[in-house]
Nucleic acid binder design. Structure first.
Lengths: 290, 290
DNA sequence: CCATGCGTTTCGCATAGCGGAACCTTAACG
DNA sequence: CGTTAAGGTTCCGCTATGCGAAACGCATGG
């Protein structure tokens, strides 16, 4: 009997936890937040599940089958079948004729498009970013905060670097990246403090190492307008970044020049790229009109 | 009693139709298809509703409130509240502090990102597209089919055209645009015939006008590799386009050069841009490796 | 042939989530 | 200030929804 009851409880009980506690499902709202929705009459769980599923697709890893999706998300096979089916019908997933596995379809770009269109500064910045990319031979990007990540909303690279290092939509950690620190520097003290609390909670002991480095970067920005971060985000990448506001004057973002460490000399980053970046940001901030 | 029953029936009955028959909610799966899901045990309606809601946001139209969303989608206010609430929690919508209205957030870009990363030819094309844009002074784009639309998956513009005419994720009609016709030309006869059936169904009487023009464009492509479409998609836009395949060799796409009619002379489009475009497509198709 | 692995289908059940209606706010107006 | 209007949220009863364990199909492949 106890078994019976337990099994029932577990079966239902697993539902939420499947999303909530296990494996940090929603990368931006903390797991705790998700857990808090346990009794929330307003929260639509099937939606959360579907997005978690979409999130299981990673760039460059190619198509995924239902089994793989089930494994990654922790959702039961039947549920995955239903979700992939629905998403396919809606056109957001595309199923390979051959192996029946799924891939996100361009339709997703279409729903993401209004995001781009709503970032006023993007349009203005585009050309000048490209010029800066050409001059520096590195990648230039504009990024916007999202949880504890920075998301690229615009990206240019020079011909020198054959492939774009990172493209629109890619994400870099807010704490380790130059972009993230530039953004953090633009926050009010109390806002930044709140973020720090989050980080502390998330990172635990590592935070002690990280915090001073972030503070250094912020001080650097205060002093000369940009920060230089060398191989912290990734072993092989260095970048400079500066904060910038969108045309509405409130939305905070970051502007970055970066690239593979082997191709970029630290001096040129600090002496040339950094100042140019600041110049660009200034130019965009006192934007003529609109 | 009859009233009672009817009201009940209507109440529930309205649900599906709210998505299905009314106002062509899912732009790519035909309304008919959606309607067909009436009894489909596998179809998750809340998902469809949520995406319809996301789809209500249009580029450049700024943030939307729940009322507006309710009006646009035909979903009841309470439902909209629940959905916006959930999407906000998940981070895909962002709510303005001031007026409480919603806007799609960059998190959407992050879920769309794998789409870009999976299109192999994108990376290779980027630089050469940019060069072509610089040379022509027009916009160069790579687009992928989605239902009866072409969606831009890559876009370059020259410095000459200050703003990007269209950005990644924007959509143009398959029937009217050069890109769409280039894509159509790359289909097998039976596939194309199937598309034509769709169009005929969708467009009704207009189809009679449109079809010959599409066939002309296709003939043009057969003959000289590209088609030139002048102010059909929009009053003020002209473009040339050519078909191209992704690296996998199967996924069909289109490559376009286009821009405002006043800035582009028909002769240069046909004599210079078109041939260059074809050259570019050829170069990309016999891509060296990978 | 039986195992293994993927995918779909079935089906009974609890509840998720729907939506009409009531209920707050704010704002504007007379 | 009442009053109307327009946005939004909350309530709440009800059932269709969508969940997921388990059974089933269907390929591989040893």
């Amino acid at each position: 009997m106890a078994t019976e009851t337990d099994s029932g409880a577990t079966r239902r009980g697993l539902r939420r936890p499947g999303l909530a506690s296990r494996r940090i499902p929603l990368r931006l709202n903390d797991a705790e937040l998700a857990a808090r929705h346990g009794e929330d009459r307003k929260f639509v769980w099937s939606l959360a599940r579907a997005f978690e599923l979409l999130h299981a697709f990673r760039p460059g890893q190619g198509p995924l089958g239902n089994a793989e999706l089930s494994a990654r998300t922790g959702l039961p096979k039947a549920t995955v079948t239903r979700l992939t089916y629905t998403l396919t019908q809606l056109g957001y997933l595309r199923q390979s004729e051959l192996d029946g596995r799924y891939q996100p379809s361009p339709a997703l770009l279409a729903i993401a498009y209004p995001v781009l269109a709503n970032i006023g500064i993007r349009q203005m910045a585009q050309e000048r970013m490209q010029r800066l990319a050409d001059h520096t031979g590195a990648s230039v990007a504009l990024s916007s905060p999202d949880g504890d990540m920075m998301i690229y909303v615009s990206a240019c690279s020079s011909s020198a670097l054959d492939a774009l290092l990172l493209d629109i939509g890619s994400r870099v950690g807010m704490t380790q990246s130059a972009a993230g620190r530039a953004y953090l520097s633009s926050l009010e003290d109390d806002e930044r403090e709140a973020m720090f609390e989050h980080f502390a909670g998330r990172l635990g002991p590592d935070w002690a190492d990280l915090k001073p480095r972030i503070l250094d970067s912020i001080a650097e920005i205060r002093e000369r307008g940009f920060c230089y971060v060398d191989r912290e985000w990734r072993e092989d990448v260095r970048a400079v970044a500066t904060p910038i506001a969108d045309l509405d004057g409130t939305t905070r973002m970051a502007l970055t020049v970066g690239g593979p460490a082997f191709a970029l000399a630290p001096e040129q980053m600090v002496e040339d790229f950094g100042p140019r970046l600041v110049h660009l940001a200034r130019g965009l901030s006192r934007a003529p009109m609109r």
